[in-house]
Amino acid sequence: MQRVTKLNGELSTNDNETANTMNTFFSSVFSSDNNCDPPPLAEKVYPQTLNSIEITEEKVAKAIRATNPNKAPGPDNLHPKFIVETRDSITKPLSVIFNKSIDESTLPTSWKMTNRIIRNEIVAHMEDNQLFSNDQHGFRQGKSCTTQLLETMEIWYSSLDEGHNVDVIYMDFSKASIRSAIDYLLQVGKIWDSW
């Protein structure tokens, strides 16, 4: 870790001092969120709800076809090659077991195939009912971090071509201490939009 200047003007001499100095600084500039609520979302009417997921033999077969037989065995110690090669024999029993597991609300996290099927069902429901924002690129077919970046850069370049300034703020939203900054930036964004 790099050395930093402590409050007394001296450089930190070890990693522990550096960490404590940085902690003191960040604690001093952190503002609490004052329990403010996030901005309200626009109300949306959902044409169809997803009340249950039925795992059919076809869905199990599709998940097995998507399985890479060259991967290592999962937590169940079943080799993917075995699963792929016995697909015709295991599709029906697996669909029965998976449905029973869902009915009893006991879905083991190690069942990657079931998780994949459920994820696909949820994503399909959201796509079919247009529940994703057009700006949502993660977890969507045909969209990725790359398409998000390309779309964002297109907006930036168009703005620059029209003579506008482009200001960019990069943030790691996974940090809990950033919550106040998010609330602040949302307010700044509202002010900026009103100009």
Results as ranks from 00 to 15, higher is better:
Pro80Leu: 02
Val45Asp: 10
Thr21Glu: 11
Leu131Asp: 00
Arg65Asp: 15
Phe98Thr: 00
Glu121Asn: 09
Asp172Ile: 03
Pro75Gly: 03
Phe139Pro: 01
Ile102Lys: 01
Glu104Asn: 12
Asp172Phe: 10
Val188His: 11
Val123Pro: 00
Thr106Ala: 04
Met22Arg: 12
Cys145Phe: 13
Ser28Gln: 08
Cys145His: 09
His164Pro: 00
Ala42Ile: 13
Pro73Met: 09
Asp88Lys: 05
Gln141Asn: 12
Leu150Tyr: 04
Lys143His: 11
Pro93Thr: 12
Thr152Asn: 05
Ser52Asn: 09
Asp193Leu: 09
Ser101Met: 14
Val84Ala: 06
Gly142Trp: 14
Pro108Ala: 12
Glu43Tyr: 03
Val168Thr: 11
Glu127Lys: 04
Ser105Arg: 10
Ile122Met: 12
Ser159His: 11
Thr86Gln: 15
Ile122Arg: 06
Gln48Leu: 02
Thr146Cys: 06
Asp172Trp: 13
Asn134Phe: 14
Asn120Asp: 15
Pro75Thr: 02
Val168Asp: 06
Lys81Arg: 05
Asp15Ala: 05
Asp183Ile: 10
Lys190Ile: 08
Ser110Leu: 14
Gln148Arg: 03
Thr147Phe: 08
Asn14Phe: 04
Ser144Glu: 11
Ser105Val: 10
Gln48Gly: 00
Ala124Val: 02
Val123Thr: 01
Thr146Met: 14
Lys143Ala: 03
Ile55Asn: 00
Val188Gly: 11
Glu58Ser: 02
Asn8Phe: 08
Ala42Met: 10
Thr24Gln: 09
Glu104Ala: 13
Ser174Glu: 07
Thr106Trp: 05
Ser174Pro: 02
Asp172Pro: 03
Ser52Tyr: 03
Leu107Trp: 12
Leu149Glu: 04
Ile90Trp: 07
Lys100Glu: 08
Gln141Leu: 05
Ser144Pro: 10
Ala176Glu: 14
Glu85Met: 03
Ala72Phe: 14
Gln48Thr: 01
Val45Asn: 09
